[in-house]
């Protein structure tokens, strides 16, 4: 064996070390596992997805290339347009609520009080519980016959008849938005709290010495420093919300009369329910450019902030 080694041990180590110090080689080695897994498990499905969207594939039938026909058909489909509009509406309001309420909670939690740790951990609970299961719990609370919310309001004398939580188009959408907010708000709160803790308290002190009130202190001192954190959270949240599936699927299935259908649930209905894989893929791919645009804008803004 020793003969087989061309060089003594002492000379080998620097060689290995040297080559690992080569940035390109090291980078390649470090990136390999991630790229490998992604290439094996997502590149093919993604390419397949794009191909499906350009073909007339249905379940069990390979189909042929049809160009952009599926996309045009989807665009011409009134249910798709409803779903597309709903998705924007849903994402926009859910994000607004998650951000504003999350910020509020973060500011509250940033103060010192007894049981702070416990409260912080408790606030995260909605984020932990599997969406499918928590949505079932909400459905149980919105149940037309057994709703605890209706009962409370009824006993309090605020309503005379049941509220149509999930049976009215507008109500149903807002119910979905509130559940999404309930679920996502803790993530915002804790992340923003993390951001708040890095802000030097001296800055606040200085500002309050200058006689700034709480609102102005927040606006002029806290907010500018929190902006980068906020943007990152918003990016993640927009991606998740825009492609939300489980919540609507469990809560309403897109009803009543498509008023809560989102792009993802509709794509599933077409692709799996009706077996039209090509059209389903096209519908779900409609999300990609939108998400890409949102992310690109936010990244650009973030870079500009960093650069400044």
């Amino acid at each position: 064996m020793e003969v087989a080694l061309p060089r003594p041990r002492a000379a080998r180590e620097p060689f290995l070390t040297r080559s690992l110090d080569n940035e390109r080689l090291l980078a390649a080695i470090l990136l390999a596992p991630a790229v490998l897994i992604l290439a094996v498990f997502i590149a093919y499905p993604f390419v397949m997805g794009v191909w499906l969207s350009l073909s007339s594939t249905s379940v069990g039938n390979p189909g042929e290339f049809v160009g952009l026909k599926n996309f045009l058909k989807a665009w011409d489909d009134s249910i798709f347009r409803t779903a597309f509009g709903n998705t924007f509406f849903y994402t926009f309001w859910a994000t607004v609520f998650k951000l504003s309420l999350g910020m509020w909670v973060a500011l509250l939690l940033n103060r010192h009080f007894r049981g702070k740790r416990l409260v912080r951990a408790a606030m995260l609970l909605p984020f932990i519980i599997p969406t499918v299961l928590s949505t079932f719990a909400w459905r149980w609370m919105f149940d037309p016959t057994f709703s605890v919310l209706n009962w409370t309001l009824y006993k309090a004398g605020l309503i005379a008849t049941k509220l149509p939580f999930l049976s009215d188009s507008t109500w149903a959408m807002w119910c979905a938005i509130s559940i999404n907010t309930w679920r996502g708000m803790p993530f915002f709160a804790i992340t923003l709290l993390a951001g708040l803790q890095t802000i030097n308290p001296d800055l606040h002190e200085a500002a309050s010495l200058d006689g700034a009130n709480a609102w102005r202190r927040f606006w002029h001192v806290t907010w500018p420093l929190l902006k980068p954190v906020t943007l990152v959270v918003v990016v993640f949240s927009v991606i998740q919300t825009f492609s939300d599936f489980q919540l609507i699927y469990v809560l309403t299935g897109g009803g009543p009369a498509n008023s809560t259908h989102l792009v993802a649930t509709y794509a599933y209905q077409i692709g799996v329910g009706a077996g039209l894989l090509g059209e389903g893929a096209a519908i779900s791919l409609f999300m990609l450019p939108v998400l890409f645009f949102v992310v690109w804008m936010q990244l650009r803004y973030l870079r500009r902030l960093e650069g400044a």
Binding site: Y44, P45, G49, F245, A264, T265, G271, L277, L288, V295
Partner: peptide, 10 residues
């Protein structure tokens, strides 16, 4: 960003 809804098929 790849929409996951139908990814399970491929």
């Amino acid at each position: 960003l790849v929409p996951p809804t139908l990814l399970f098929i491929p």
